[in-house]
Structures are given as structure tokens and as C-alpha cells.
């Protein structure tokens, strides 16, 4: 442990020198004062918080006809395929789950809003949609069956009504 001497040689203040500097009581009190004023500023900063979503507020009850032979619904031609669309201002992810079924969910994972059209994958065996962002899993009705253990509230995924007779159908927001 000859380091203290080495560091002194290198121009680094020794332990004693530091103690002298630190023992200035007035400086110490000033620092405490500075901390207290910084704390007093905190509510001001909190007041600067804001959240905005661009675009109009979603409207419920709007219907959209789709055709899986046409873009952007062509991926629904295959089981497991996903397509994304917007109905009444709500982003929607559609999934072809079986030869005769298409499901539609809000294209926003309720955990941290990852777009399920990009991160979601449909498990045809378990009939579940999992979000690739942090692993939330939803059943065919949108019920959350698995949720990340990070203290956030488990929330179901909004599902929308779909009628489908290949190759066309209707989704209702």
C-alpha cells in the first residue's frame, strides 16, 4: 500500500491535503444551502411535464372493409400473417389466425406501447399473441395472460370485432 506516496509524487493531493480543503465549515454549509435550493426548484421542473398524442382522438364504431388480395392486407393471405391499418383513428393490427379467422387488436401493446404489427407474433398452437418488446402475452380475446415483472399494471389488449369470409371481411373499431 505504498500508493499514497506514489500519488503524491504524481501531483495528486495526499489524504491530508484533501482533509484541509474539506474542513472549511463555511464551504460545507454553502454546499448544503445549494442542495436545498436545488430541491426547491424540483416542483417547477415537474410543472414543465407534458404529454401529447398527434392526430385526432379515435372515434369508435367506424367500420372498414378489407380484401386480403389487396395491399395492405395481403400478408393476411397466410396463417400467422399480420397487417396494420387505421380505423377511425385507431391503429389496428390484424392477424390471420386460421384458414377461416382473422383477429384484430389495437396496434399498441398496453405495456409500453410497442406496435404489435412490428413486434407481435402469433402462436398458432397456443392461440396467443406475444409482444417481442418485453414479453407480454395475450390470448385471442386480448386478455393478458403473461406480463413483464416490472411493476406496471397488467392490462388487457383491446380487441376489435372482425367478420371474415375469405378473401374479404370487415373490421369495426
Amino acid at each position: 500500500m505504498a500508493k499514497a506516496a506514489d500519488q503524491h509524487d504524481l501531483g495528486v493531493p495526499s489524504g491530508d491535503a484533501r482533509a484541509d480543503v474539506g474542513s472549511d465549515r463555511r464551504e460545507f454549509l454553502c454546499k448544503i444551502g445549494a442542495l436545498a435550493s436545488a430541491g426547491a426548484l424540483a416542483p417547477l421542473v415537474v410543472g414543465c411535464e407534458s404529454a401529447e398524442v398527434f392526430g385526432p382522438e379515435p372515434v369508435a364504431g367506424v367500420k372498414l372493409d378489407f380484401d386480403i388480395t389487396k395491399e395492405p392486407f395481403k400478408p393476411l393471405a397466410d396463417v400467422g400473417g399480420k397487417a396494420k391499418t387505421i380505423v377511425g383513428g385507431t391503429p389496428i393490427v390484424m392477424v390471420r389466425t386460421t384458414a377461416t379467422q382473422v383477429l384484430a387488436f389495437k396496434d399498441e401493446c398496453p405495456h409500453k406501447q410497442c406496435p404489435l404489427s412490428a413486434t407481435g407474433s402469433w402462436d398458432t398452437g397456443k392461440k396467443q399473441l406475444s409482444c417481442g418488446c418485453h414479453g407480454a402475452v395475450f390470448d385471442a380475446t386480448g386478455k393478458a395472460v403473461s406480463w413483464p415483472k416490472d411493476g406496471t399494471t397488467q392490462t388487457n389488449l383491446k380487441a376489435f370485432k372482425v367478420t371474415f369470409a375469405s378473401p374479404t371481411g370487415t373490421v369495426q373499431a
Binding site: C48, E49, S50, A51, E52, V53, F54
Partner: peptide, 9 residues
């Protein structure tokens, strides 16, 4: 982002 804005401390 193109869809939202969040300002926070």
C-alpha cells in the same frame, strides 16, 4: 416521435 411527444423530468 411522429405520433407523440413526452416531456418529463
Amino acid at each position: 416521435t411522429k405520433d407523440w411527444k413526452l416531456a418529463q423530468w
